[in-house]
Structure formats: structure tokens, C-alpha cells
Amino acid sequence: MENQLYLSSSPHIHSGETTDKVMRKVIYALLPATALSIYFFGLPALSVLLICTLGCMGFEALSCKLMKKPIALADGSAALTGILLALNMPPSSPWWLALFGAAIAILIGKQVYGGLGYNPFNPALVARVVLLISFPVQMTSWTSPAPLGSGLDAITTATPLGEMQTAVMLTGKLPELAHSGFLDYLTGNMAGSLGEVSAIALLLGGLYLLWKRVISWHIPVAFIGTVLVIGAIFWAVSPEKYPNPLFHLLTGGLLLGALFMATDMVTSPVTNKGMLIFGFGCGLLTVLIRLFGGYPEGVSFAILLMNAATPLIDRFCRPKIYGQAEAKA
């Protein structure tokens, strides 16, 4: 009997919640949004999804093999990066663009730093931004939704945020769509990248992650809250020039970014206080870029900039340890 006994130091039990289970839960949480994007954008969306996901997994396996590391597909992180990347691509992306994005996400976004846990930037966002700069035309050709079975053809159009920026630039005034169409924004019936569509589907997934305690409320609430508050201030000052805060919330990538991209554990702060600062920074940068920047959408840049600030935030937000605080009574 003795030689089959395990000797080890305590603790002797584990919660059972391992990295692969955490990743799997995030993937589950993205399912509603993924399904809706396929419904609205049809087969092109499906093919972008497949290419990005399989591409990321392929590049992950390849780089592990080249570096003679154990192949880490089982942790689910490569598949998750693939899905997130797809959700950040226009539905009309050609196959080579999606594949190139997958390569950048895994090779440049993650593996050069040493793989999971060591990458300072969100890999999917790194890929999106590299693509946006290298292939601005393909990355900003948006199509109108053509729901499955509706018989509609996808036609080229602008995103609500893009249209707003153009209109404000040309006429100094908000276009009509900034005041109406909110029901469509809520369900996702508008032009945008795969995952920038349905607020409801994204919220559903976000709530699931909160319920399962995969993420905490700090980053999403600080991020979205900051956008709403600052958006509201501008809107109150000059409502004909700046959109109302709901428009900020429901169009573009705010929900996808705040719920799924900014909450990426590896690239965000580890303490609650740090997460609040991080979320606030993301929100502030997003509004500033949307209203005053050269790009209609600022979520990706905002998150990447805050990713860069994360080590600093962590340094400043070391938790106050027990017994170092003043006694309460």
C-alpha cells in the first residue's frame, strides 16, 4: 500500500476550475453573438469565423512544434483568440486577410512573447490593428446585413459610427441615424464587424461570464460607464454635433470590447482597483478617438493602449496587506 501513497504539501484539493475550463466558458459566452453574426451576414461570416479559428489553432500548433514546446491547443486559448479575431473582422473579409490576421495574432501577438500568459497585448486586437493599418480598404468595407433566408443581397455600406463621422465632418451635424434605429442596433441589424452587431447577444454572454465569475464587473462597468458619462456630457453641451450616449453604447465595438476584449485576463490588471483604472482609461480613450480621432472607432486602440499601461497600473495598485492597514476599531 505504502508505495502508492501520494506525499505532498497542503492544500490537497483544487477547485477544479482550470485554465481550459475558463477559456471554454468564454467561448460559450461568445456563442450567441457568433450565431447572430452568421444569421445576419450569412456564409461569408461563417467562413471568416472558420478561417480565423482554425488558422489560430494551426499557427499555435505550428509554433509550438517549431519551438519544441508541448502543443498547447488543449488550453483553448488559441481557439478563443481565433473567435475574437473573427468577431473583429468585416464579414466581407477575403480568406487571405482572415488567415493573415490569424498568423499575426498567434505569432506576433502571442508566441514571440513566450505564449499564453506572457503576451502584453490582446493578440486578437494586435492582429486587427495591424490589418487595419496594412489593409485599410479591406478592413473598412462594410456590408449591410442580409439575414439568412431574407433574400436580400449584401450591399456595401458604412457603419453607423463611420456614417456619423463622415456626416459630422461634411455638414457639422449628426446624421439622422444617430437619433433613430436603436432597435436595429440592439438586435444587431446594422453594418459592422462580425461581433459588433448585437448588443443583446453580447450582453447575454457577458452576464454569463459574470455569473460564472470568469470576469468581474470592474472593467466592463468602468469602461462602459466612462463612455456613457463622457458621451452624455458632450451630448448635453451640443446635441446636434455629438451623438447621445446610447448611440455610443449600441454601435461599434464597445460592448464586444468592454465585455470580451478588455477583460482578457492576461493583458489587464490583476487587482480590482487596477481593473477600475484600466476600464476608465479604455472608456476615456474610446470616446476621445471616436469624437476627435482619425478613425471612426476607437475601442481597439483604447484597449491596446491600456494593455501597455497594465504593468504600471499593477505596480501602483498593490493590495494593502492584512496587518499593514490601521486597525478599524
Binding site: 483544487h14 475558463v22 505564449g115
Partner: peptide
């Protein structure tokens, strides 16, 4: 009663 796990890299989950 004691599942064995392979330790992986820290994912900074906090």
C-alpha cells in the same frame, strides 16, 4: 478523489 493536473503558465486571472 484526487484529479491530477499539469501546471500551466499563469494567466494573470488575479
Amino acid at each position: 478523489d484526487l484529479p491530477r493536473y499539469e501546471a500551466g503558465p499563469c494567466i494573470r486571472c488575479g
